[in-house]
Design a binder for these strands. Structure first.
Lengths: 344, 344
DNA sequence: GCAGGCACTGTTAGCGCTAACAATTGCGTA
DNA sequence: TACGCAATTGTTAGCGCTAACAGTGCCTGC
């Protein structure tokens, strides 16, 4: 009661005094150095516990030049994809004992990405994960001159920045082959915004799969990921004669498209099969339940942190490196056999 | 070319030397102190620019005891509500010049919340926003002994922790009154998990609005926010004789319920009107487009940061304080006039 | 019995910054 | 002319921690 007149939190010296050792020994205990006698260690630990001591990380960061904080730059974390990716990154980072500092961008211009990276560098983060699914943002990374390691998620393919991404093209391929396997002559595509690498990957996979099967490749429509743009695409596709299958680049647009088809009394999958991409939690309860492609965002997060920490902790930059996470086809009711009627 | 042999980033002393002043003067310029001659300031600024100097925030935090970092503890940021709230918080914090450090919890037990708050305290955050929509988490806050200010989002109503929340009860009231206004005798309810404060608010608002109108109050069903639980509730409600209107506690469950009704060939809104809560981006494209209640998450974020920073910067704790953000009814096709047939 | 080595602990010197105080200058005024 | 004061700048002393080096015993081997 008499000794704790001062209300300021205890520091290492207080612990040292209570344990009857030097502050350096306390530091050794805290950092798991060898060569500390068991009994001494116990005494220090007891003192720490007694005082409720927590070490000051700012002081530690100052001298070690490491903050144990990783930065994350992401685009609109309200969307399912980015939100899930960031979530995966956060879990993996925390498991490794790192803090996560986030900057969420409204618009993903190169300028904003650079700004965000600098903002985080100022804070002294040890490394940065950039979720940069747009081409412009990916390019911005190439010209970046930070001294901290950077890893790109869904945005690599260029420069020295290591990248982790889901195999979009292969997911699209699986989907197209599934639809062709159901007897569809060809598959139309509603793509995502052209500047997005994910959109491009899906577009590529779709085109290649059709070409490989010797099928005609229709002109793709382009949306902006929003349900509304999917709705608009749906109204336009409804006028295509002989349409039997559509691969929409994400589930939200697929929802809009389904809505348009419902209004126009086009049966899914009776007349037209529809498939999406992402497997958002809602997809299973669309009307009808949506065939789509699942991405393992947790795995993406884990791999990006793994690559980043390897660079942070070794202090080296092994240069470009890519990690591709497989995509998984999820078949539901929205895809079905091609209508026989068409064959006649 | 000859002067920059050393590759380590420049420090304040380097700037001082180049500008021909003391490092303290550089510090003054950086911190906008008065009493620095204009010409001197310019010289320092030029030197800073020249060297590409950025101040070391760890060193600054060490001496000022402020990190300009705020912590955010949130539950599953993959969900639309939490994701939007965190996004709003992040935007507001960055606008105020603060960094955001996030911990995203898988399960929202009191234990985990306390752990997360301590994790963030260790890092030296200046304040913490806890998105704690569950009763247990809210209770955990009460027993918290941190020295940093804490503000609760969607979780207050107890203890001294200031709280920001959306007026759930009023949103529910608006919805119920809208449905009653359409001629429905009463409105059934699929509630969220009982431990959730938001679920409770919506339940309360629904019950009170029915009672106020002198209508019978049916037993509410309970879901877990997931589309699947909404689907299950839908199948059960389908057997209720005389059912004409359902208020589902969130849009995702409403989607599941709509799916169930579709399978059972129950017309919406022809036979039964359905309404949700949240106004997720998909809601407008449900089949049919969903009547729901919109929450202004951006405003929630702004207010929570405002309250938090007021406490952080004044160093005072004015005690309990509550800020309630209004909810807004969004009417779409899923709600319609009560079927005449029933009246006969 | 003593050099050499090992295990353990303490001492010293910063990390890069800001706060507090000291010193200097220039000016107005008695 | 000299004093006081304000404006401006410099000097000093840490913030709390870790790294590097310097002891201090004690045991080993010859």
């Amino acid at each position: 009661m008499s000794s704790n007149e001062v209300r300021r939190p205890p520091v290492m010296a207080d612990v040292a005094q209570l344990a009857g050792v030097s502050h350096q020994t306390v530091s050794r205990v805290l950092n798991d150095h060898p060569n500390v006698r068991g009994e001494t260690r116990d005494r220090v630990l007891a003192a720490i516990d007694d005082l409720g001591y927590r070490r000051n990380l700012a002081a530690r960061a100052l001298v070690t030049r490491h903050s144990r904080t990783l930065g994350v730059v992401s685009f609109d974390t309200t969307l399912y994809g980015p939100a899930s990716t960031v979530y995966g990154i956060e879990q993996a980072a925390r498991a490794a004992g790192y803090f996560i500092s986030i900057v969420s961008l409204k618009t993903l211009t190169a300028e904003r990405v650079v700004e965000a990276v600098e903002f985080l560098s100022d804070q002294g983060v040890d490394g940065i994960v950039v979720v940069a699914p747009q081409r412009s943002a990916a390019r911005a990374l190439a010209g970046l001159s930070t001294h901290v390691p950077v890893v790109a998620v869904e945005g690599g393919q260029g420069g020295d920045t290591p990248a982790v991404s889901v195999d979009q093209a292969d997911g699209a391929r699986q989907l197209v082959e599934h639809l062709l396997g159901l007897g569809h002559e060809t598959v139309w595509h509603v793509a995502g915004p052209t500047d997005w690498l994910e959109a491009e990957g899906r577009l590529d996979g779709w085109r290649k799969a059709l070409t490989a099967a010797g099928r005609p490749v229709p002109d793709p429509l382009v949306g902006d990921w929003s349900p509304r743009s999917g709705y608009d695409a749906g109204r336009r596709l409804a006028e295509v004669p002989g349409l039997t299958a559509v691969f929409v680049a994400n589930d939200q647009m697929a929802l809009g498209l389904l809505r348009a088809f419902t209004e126009l009394r086009i049966q899914v999958p009776g007349q037209v099969s529809v498939a999406g991409f992402d497997d958002i939690p809602e997809a299973e309860f669309f009307n009808p339940p949506l065939t789509t492609v699942q991405q393992d965002f947790g795995e993406v997060g884990r791999r990006s942190i793994e690559i980043l920490l390897r660079r942070v902790e070794s202090g080296e930059d092994p240069g470009y490196e890519q990690s591709v996470v497989p995509a998984r086809l999820v078949i539901r009711d929205s895809s079905g056999r091609a209508a026989r009627a068409k064959q006649n």
